[in-house]
Amino acid sequence: MFVTEMMKTDLVAITPETSLAEAKELMEKGNFRHLPVVDADGKLVGIVTDRDMRDAHPSSLLDEESYQKTLDKVLKHTIGEIMTAEPITVAPYYTLQDTLLIIGKKKVGALPVVDEEGYLKGIMSTRDLLRAFVNIMGIEEPGTLLCILVDEQPGQLKKIVDIAAEENVSLGSVLVARDWDKEKRAIFPYLLTNNVISIKKKLLALGYELLDPMQWYLDQSPKKE
């Protein structure tokens, strides 16, 4: 899945000449945490975050009169003075996995998506990423999560998927926990059905162990001494 499929494209962009007052209003109105900054041609030149805006604000500990006075001054400044120039960006051909890793590594809240010429194409925020993963996990569709413990050897998932196919059941997602236990993996198929009885029976007949997720939770929790 590429970022172009999940990024936000109905963009509100500002220029370095935009006043802080204007930017503040745009952010509050659209409930944005990031605003991309572009030049007159639409090429990305920076990004401004709600944190940059807060840093530029006078201290909330000031008395009301001096706060207002300083605020009036601050809001006349331009975005060019506080924006992060040359921010970290991604290209449209980047995958969801890429952005997940970059966001984690660089500790940023949003990544502008720019093409080879530097034009802004969209923005991918952590919120967009979360939405993408809700979609990938299929958890907004009705279904049932099974928790299956299998031996660490090839071909296990196939047997599980075969059983689901035999029962004419679609898969919403399959998550695999790799470091479960020595020589064991835990497989979590999210089945888009209410009808799990015959699938469970077939899995048990093949010798798979159906995990009690709460038992696992209790085993993993720190023990009270």
Partner: peptide, 8 residues
């Protein structure tokens, strides 16, 4: 709902 149908 994280485990059981229908997820709501």
């Amino acid at each position: 709902p994280s485990f059981a149908y229908p997820g709501t």
